[in-house]
């Protein structure tokens, strides 16, 4: 029993040493990270656009109505069937590999692609956007919390599937 207590005490000390070294080294180095950061999608993409950028609801609405972009719904097939942005086709993250070739077959690499999912913290659109980027698409935009925003704005939605059609300008 004593050795368990002993190991707990040593474990706490080891953790404290690691904390001291980690925080100290991070403070001294030039490329250290902030101790606390805003990890919301909007904050991260605003800071480092990298592979894709954000799109506003207004811009997305215009692109959809003018058919100037391909909309990709990264949510599950079931969620998509229940309702989606009118001009969107479904590329569910969990079966992305299965659908990717079919979805991207008719989309030129320079096409604007808008990816969305649902919820402020939803990462699916980012995962799909990144995968599309690695496939050669370099004009990808993410509509954060896209489905909720679109619904709340009363913009056109559809149960119609546009899976087999490619919307391009």
């Amino acid at each position: 029993m004593r050795i368990w207590f002993h190991s707990w005490r040593q474990g706490i000390w080891i953790f404290l040493i690691a904390m001291l070294l980690g925080l100290g080294f991070n403070e001294l180095r030039s490329d250290g990270v902030a101790l606390f950061a805003d990890w919301s999608t909007e904050a991260r993409l605003a800071e480092d656009p990298g592979e894709f950028t954000l799109v506003s609801l207004e811009e997305a609405r215009m692109l959809c109505s003018m058919k100037n972009a391909v909309f990709v719904d990264a949510r599950t097939s079931e969620a998509y069937r229940q309702g989606h942005i009118l001009c969107a086709q479904n590329l569910p993250w969990e079966s992305m590999e299965e659908h990717m070739d079919r979805i991207t077959a008719g989309i030129p690499l320079e096409e604007t692609i808008i990816v969305y999912c649902d919820g402020e913290d939803c990462m699916l659109s980012e995962y799909v956007a990144r995968e599309l980027f690695y496939r050669g698409y370099d004009n990808i935009k993410v509509l954060v919390n896209g489905w909720t925003k679109w619904l709340e704005a009363g913009l056109p939605i559809g149960p119609e599937s546009v899976d087999d059609t490619t919307i391009s300008g």
């Binding site: 190991s7 040593q10 474990g11 000390w13 080891i14 690691a18 904390m19 925080l23 080294f25 990270v33």
Partner: peptide, 26 residues
């Protein structure tokens, strides 16, 4: 910031044999 240093210290302690009960537990 902290976890990699914890891994480094644990690895070193396991190799050297310092504070083994605590290092093994963590």
């Amino acid at each position: 910031i902290i976890l990699p240093w914890l891994e480094l210290i644990l690895g070193a302690f396991l190799l050297i044999g310092i504070w083994l009960p605590g290092a093994v537990f963590l």
